[in-house]
């Protein structure tokens, strides 16, 4: 309160109105209004309001507030086709305003009889990190602050101890002697801990095995980030910045559309590509052909061949996540 010595029981000329005292019928509430007390109170009120207005001034600079339509939009699974068309149109408009181009955005659904599996050849990977950068370009990840879905670990030969992995190796030329390289990204688990902890069902597993995120539903609590044993999820601490001329206009609603600040994102097996039959961007760019991707339900697919014929293992098998991401050896 403005007057610290004002007591409800005492009242007096300095006691300011009924504001702090709460009860009715007190003497102080009916103190006569003198010229002196009026001036004091009105100056106080005016300066208080001015301070409040000034402190709220930065709100006027907020430009990334969600639109009303985005704010009232339902959960992804409750959207009717016409709701989805409206949402896509809104996103098209937002991208057009921000980046000056109209994206090809679709809501791609899982395909029937398809379950995606990824296999990575540890014998062949040379640790060049091209996959990391192709992924950033394809999926419109923030360049500054930097967000990358793939981490390439340099591991000393003869161990699987992830504690000894180094993702910050700075060598110009790869591979180095005495080391092998293990890229880690979202493992699209069959038993995903990240989905279990989400308090608002903003992330879930789809029929083709891809765990997706509805960026309009995520509240940014980061529980999923903490739950993931592979450190696959990334949080947008700041508004993602993607140079206009580098924006990939081929987008999917649950995939690589631009994310707002304050939501989690992660690898989604490039669903804007893979649900259209293409290989993911990390596979396309890999110079050694270490990355293999396909439909595990198709016995003729590359990944089926690998699981049948190669020595395969999953990372952190003991945590029971049942990943759809397998590492294998050639020898």
């Amino acid at each position: 309160m403005s007057e610290s010595n004002c007591k409800c029981s005492g009242g007096g000329p300095g006691c300011s109105g009924s504001g702090g005292c709460g009860g009715h019928g007190h003497e102080g509430a009916h103190a006569p209004l003198t010229r002196r007390s009026f001036l004091r109170k009105s100056t106080l009120a005016a300066s208080g309001i001015a301070a409040l207005a000034a402190s709220l001034a930065p709100l006027r600079e907020l430009t990334d507030m969600p639109s009303l339509q985005e704010f009232v939009q339902k959960h992804y699974k409750e959207l009717t086709p016409s709701d989805m068309e409206k949402a896509l149109e809104r996103i098209r408009g937002e991208v057009q305003r921000q980046y000056g181009l109209r994206p090809e955005i679709k809501d791609l659904k899982p395909m029937d009889g398809v379950e995606f599996v990824y296999c990575l050849n540890l014998t062949r990977c040379v640790g060049c990190r091209k996959c990391v950068h192709a992924c950033v370009a394809e999926n419109n990840q923030s360049r500054s602050p930097e967000i990358q879905y793939i981490r390439v670990l340099k591991m000393p030969n003869g161990t699987f101890d992830l504690e000894r992995g180094d993702h910050d190796y700075k060598t110009e030329s790869v591979p180095e002697k005495g080391a092998y390289y293990m890229p880690v990204q979202c493992h699209q688990c069959k038993n995903p801990p990240c989905v279990k902890v989400c308090p608002v069902d903003a992330t879930w597993q789809e029929a083709d095995g891809i765990t997706v995120i509805d960026y309009d539903w995520c509240i940014g609590c980061r529980y999923c980030e903490a739950a993931c044993p592979y450190w696959a999820r990334r949080f947008n601490f700041a508004k993602p910045s993607v140079p206009k001329e580098k924006l990939n206009p081929n987008m999917a609603y649950l995939g690589n559309r631009p994310r707002p600040k304050g939501v989690v994102e992660k690898c989604h097996f490039c669903l804007q590509r893979t649900r259209a039959g293409r290989y993911p961007a990390c596979l396309e760019v890999c110079p050694t052909g270490s990355r293999k991707f396909g439909n595990i339900l198709d016995p003729a697919s590359e990944v089926s061949y690998i699981l049948r014929n190669k020595r395969v293992f999953v990372l952190k098998e003991e945590v029971g996540t049942l990943p759809r991401f397998f590492y294998y050896f050639d020898i």
């Binding site: 040379v126 990190r129 990391v132 360049r143 990358q148 981490r151 993702h167 190796y169 110009e172 030329s173």
Partner: peptide
């Protein structure tokens, strides 16, 4: 041996 792309830099 090939040239490696730059590593992660969270403070880029």
């Amino acid at each position: 041996p090939i040239k490696a792309a730059p590593g992660p830099n969270l403070f880029r």
